[in-house]
Design a protein around this nucleic acid. Structure first.
Lengths: 97, 97
DNA sequence: TGGATCAATATAGTATAATATATATTTTGT
DNA sequence: ACAAAATATATATTATACTATATTGATCCA
């Protein structure tokens, strides 16, 4: 049993697009090869924490563990969820393993 | 150059302690060996995202990338930072690489 | 049409995360 | 002090992240 990491990986791409940073530029800022960034964003690799933090930092973000009871509020704050809808969980189970 | 992952790893231990879950119990819930959980919490290994997400889930949390301008607010919401002090960044650079 | 930019893909070598298992050490409760 | 529970350490093996590099396809535009 595994978890849907794509929400977080998509957040990377969203942030990168929002900041208009290419994978190559992100690569320059982090010293992570662009090819690796490509695979990370597509969920092909199971990225390590240090790598994820480098990317987050370069995108002006920090990682946090949010208790479930606060997730909705936090998501509204960081603008990842429209204010109205609340049906879908940001993470879901899948059978990928 | 690397980043201080300990803030996040400490958050794991804080949550685990708060929920009064032993490493062995967390191991049971996640199917991650207790020995590995021990090393993760102490920052000895560079944990992979899937592993971190399993742990987060078992502790009733989800991971989020928080834009820096919202970090203080989010930290107050999730109670990781005293309301008054604001000097220290939750992440800092170190030379560990 | 040719050059420049961006992204995706492939491969091989190295480093290290993760597992399984056992044992040692520390902490906690009585 | 003792036992039990919790946590840390050790070793060997397997799986895979990461790096470096090179190539390809697509798009844009001078």
């Amino acid at each position: 049993m595994n978890f849907n990491k794509f929400a977080l990986l998509e957040a990377i791409k969203e942030r990168r697009d929002a900041e208009r940073i290419s994978q190559a530029e992100l690569s320059r800022r982090t010293n992570i090869p662009q090819s690796h960034i490509s695979r990370i964003e597509r969920g092909i690799v199971d990225v390590q924490l240090s790598t994820l933090m480098q990317i987050s930092f370069a995108l002006g973000c920090e990682l946090r563990m949010i208790p479930k009871r606060h997730v909705d509020l936090v998501d509204r704050v960081i603008d990842r969820q429209p204010y109205e809808t609340n049906d879908k969980p940001a993470y879901s189970l899948d059978d990928e393993t």
